[in-house]
Design a protein around this nucleic acid. Structure first.
Lengths: 171, 171
DNA sequence: GACTGATGTTAGATATGCAAAACAATATGA
DNA sequence: TCATATTGTTTTGCATATCTAACATCAGTC
């Protein structure tokens, strides 16, 4: 029995913002949600109503807003998607903070959970594998800066690779 | 002077579909666009009008549809985004065809041109670099299948790495 | 030249999402 | 406890995007 909650993008954004505010200030308020999402306070009310109907938040007019258990569960999934995507853009593709944040924000609604897992796996693998890891990523970063693929440095790079391999064996 | 055309997602979809149909059948027709986008024929007309206003397509009621030079330029950018993203999902993250297609479809509107370039660079680099390349990707694929990070196979993996390096030197 | 089927357009309905502004509740503090 | 500022809500309106169903046009055929 799969919950086919099918939230719209904007409802997902609301949930994400609410989780964030909860963690920051215990409870969320309409104004803070509006500011975080860059919309007018008047636009928030409708979204909150939808979320109440779907039993994802506890909320009554003029009161604070908190997530229900189910709401929190979903909000955390969405937030994780965001974090993973941003991580990838930031640490692997080397986007700057702002670009990574913006792109992650827009991409997070386009990917399902399974895909996110795969991406997490990929990023982790890229960092952990002796054949890649930090040095490989650094080489890619250098390439993005200089535009030069310095294959002549490969020998040193492979040495690093073996070192990482040895280290892993030790442990 | 940057053209701030700011197309909506659906208009981007129209352009992409039209480019595709043009390449396939010389000209696009409303019905084909509708079928390709999975919407009703009646819904297409409005989108076409917007695109005419923005000078991105040549179109008059009851006639065929073709892209203007500017429209073709933009459509190609969008299509490239799609292709690059799908390539990444397909070849690196090893999504199956259908999942990759769907995800690429939804992600292509979330990424700007510069980000796409960076992703292209990354994928190319990943394939070309002796330290990664096909063998590394295969190892990652194996990992996604088995869930096991077989670091014990590293020695062989590093050998492959050096071979690729030698090959590159020869050339 | 008129019929017919395929294709295209229009109009009206529905839904979403957001903004602006008028209005309501709450909280603060003197 | 009253006045005021802050915060929240409602209403209205706009823009986008879609569907359905009625209507228009086109191209081919008899």
């Amino acid at each position: 029995m799969k919950k086919n909650t099918e939230l719209s993008e904007s409802l997902e954004d609301y949930l994400e913002a609410i989780l964030d505010l909860e963690q920051d200030k215990k409870v969320a308020r309409a104004k803070d949600i509006a500011r975080k999402l860059g919309i007018q306070p008047g636009s928030v009310t409708g979204g909150l109503k939808s979320l109440v109907e779907k039993n994802l938040i506890n909320y009554e007019p003029y009161s604070y807003i908190t997530l229900t258990a189910e709401g929190a569960r979903i909000a955390k999934l969405i937030t994780r998607r965001h974090r993973v995507l941003k991580d990838f853009l930031l640490k692997v593709l080397q986007f700057d903070e702002k670009t990574a944040e913006t792109a992650a924000c827009r991409m997070e609604h386009a990917v399902d959970e399974a895909s996110v897992e795969r991406l997490v796996d990929f990023v982790e693998y890229l960092f952990e594998c002796p054949r890649t890891g930090g040095a490989w990523i650094q080489a890619f970063v250098d390439y993005t800066r200089t535009g030069k693929k310095s294959w002549e440095k490969c020998a040193a790079c492979i040495d690093d690779c073996m070192e990482r391999h040895q280290e892993r064996k030790m442990h």
